[in-house]
């Protein structure tokens, strides 16, 4: 298999990156619609504001944020779909908006909600088109398809028309298409959407494997916190178009400052959850034992979902 070309330049280098969308406001009701025939109100929304971000080659980062935070706009700018309004952006050493062949042949984008596969033909036919597009030698193509087919469990369905695949099967085939050319940089937007638990595990293992073996940089946007927990060494939280946190998961937990909890399970089936403060554990257990026959006791960390929810709620006002 081909391995990506390496350079000392970071995979992603963004300085003061901003994106502003201009659109006409849609007035309410019939009267508003008629009024808009004569005069329309132009509105601007700053989706991304002054983003500074450096992603080194070989990193896996989670780009996270609530809906409408601006993370998809950031990914779109980084993959060359959108031209930034202001600021500097270099991805794999290129200006993405120029959409040059050397740039586009190094990246791959997985849109969880949008298909890259051709709908009316089989996955194998789509893979063949990508073989020509990315100039993959025939023997390497055969080996990679075999390997990805086995890893993703799609060997049996490679010749089935895509429209006849289930959502989970289609997502796995989408992954095979995205990884065929061994991208240097992978943008994965909700890559496990629609997959069952086992398939999710396969995808995460595959991402870790290509990151380890080929040094592929992965930018992950996902609302599935188990994806983030399993893959991302670093998370960047985007709220209101700004990066409000950049660090590892331990740092994020510390930032959220959520308490651990003691969970007591009684013989009669009751489960009680007590937030942990500065009380001595022994005293808590003694107190719990007095209210029933205790059969289990655990100290639990707050879930990443709770942590995210807390951090997202610290939303800055969008300008």
């Amino acid at each position: 298999m081909r391995s990506p070309t390496f350079s000392s330049e970071p995979a992603i280098l963004a300085q003061g990156l901003s994106k502003q969308y201009d659109f006409y406001r849609q007035p309410q009701g019939l009267r508003g619609a008629l009024r808009s025939l004569i005069s329309r109100e132009l509105t601007s929304v700053r989706a991304v504001v002054g983003l500074d971000l450096t992603v080194e080659r070989g990193e896996i980062i989670g780009l996270l944020g609530p809906n409408g935070a601006g993370k998809t706009t950031i990914v779109k700018m980084m993959s060359g779909l959108l031209e930034p309004s202001t600021g500097q952006l270099r991805v794999c050493g290129y200006r993405p908006a120029a959409r040059s062949y050397p740039f586009l042949s190094q990246i791959s984008v997985i849109f969880g909600q949008k298909a890259m596969l051709w709908w009316d033909v089989s996955t194998r036919e789509s893979l063949k088109i990508h073989r020509s597009m990315y100039e993959i030698p025939r023997d390497e193509f055969a080996a990679t398809v075999g390997e990805l087919g086995e890893l993703l469990g799609i060997t049996e369905i490679l010749d089935t028309p895509v429209r006849n695949l289930s959502l989970g099967q289609r997502m796995r085939c989408e992954l095979a298409l995205a990884l065929l050319h061994r991208p240097t940089l992978l943008f994965a937007d909700e890559p496990t959407i629609g997959l069952d638990v086992q398939a999710k595990l396969v995808v995460r293992t595959l991402f870790r494997e290509i990151n380890r073996a080929f040094g592929t940089t992965i930018v992950l946007t996902s609302h599935d916190m188990s994806d983030v927990e399993a893959l991302a060494e670093r998370v960047v939280i985007v709220t209101g178009g700004r990066a409000t946190f950049d660090g590892d998961l331990a740092g994020l937990r510390a930032r959220a400052n959520l308490q651990k909890a003691a969970v007591f399970t009684y013989h009669d089936g009751r489960v009680e959850r007590v937030p942990l403060g500065h009380e001595a554990i022994g005293a808590l257990v003694q107190a719990a034992a007095q209210s029933g026959e205790l059969v289990d006791f655990r100290v639990v960390e707050p879930g990443l979902d709770e942590v995210m929810s807390k951090v997202f709620s610290e939303r800055p006002v969008r300008s």
Partner: peptide
Amino acid sequence: LGHLNAWLVRPC
């Protein structure tokens, strides 16, 4: 509808 995305990220 944004379906162009799938083509704009391909080297073609």
